[in-house]
């Protein structure tokens, strides 16, 4: 699908997080890591809140995590999501120590529980945008 037909929100361009979105497009999620103290942080930003370093590198995400919380939306707050309803959104603790919020796939609502193991997947939304999704591990 090209971007003109796509009717869901797309991330605005941001220099601090470009390596993250580039890695998503490559289906190889990278997380921002402080080059000085090694703390992984998400969402990407200029300064490490642990040591105040502005140097960072990008570490490959394991794609493994556990459910921290969730919601099942029955109302689309933008027309682009109507076809997705009911839509399960999960907050996931990644093994790297940060969280990701994304849609859940291949999971009945009754299966969901705190600390349920999940694994990261990739969905190409447009030719320029790849979004994370999770599935039961």
């Amino acid at each position: 699908m090209n971007q003109l037909e796509y009717d869901k929100p797309v991330p605005p361009l941001n220099r601090d997080s470009k390596p993250f979105w580039d890695s998503m497009k490559a289906h190889d999620m990278r997380l921002q890591r402080c080059a000085d103290c090694g703390k992984v942080r998400h969402y990407p930003r200029p300064v490490c809140d642990n040591c105040l370093s502005m140097e960072c590198d990008w570490v490959r995400a394991s794609g493994k995590g556990k459910v921290h919380s969730w919601t099942i939306s029955h109302h689309a707050f933008l027309p682009g999501f109507i076809a997705d309803l009911p839509m399960t959104l999960v907050t996931v603790d990644l093994d790297e120590g940060v969280r990701i919020c994304a849609q859940m796939r291949d999971c009945e609502p009754e299966q969901l529980q705190v600390d349920m193991p999940v694994e990261l997947g990739y969905e190409d939304a447009t030719s320029d945008l790849t979004l994370p999704v999770f599935r039961p591990a």
Binding site: K8, P9, V10, P11, P12, N14, S17, Y43, S73, F77, L78, F81, D84, M87, L89, C101, A102, Q103, A125, L129, L131, P132
Partner: peptide
């Protein structure tokens, strides 16, 4: 931040 990382997935 929400607009960049969560709204695209539908958490709006």
């Amino acid at each position: 931040v929400l607009g960049e990382f969560e709204m695209p997935s539908g958490n709006i």
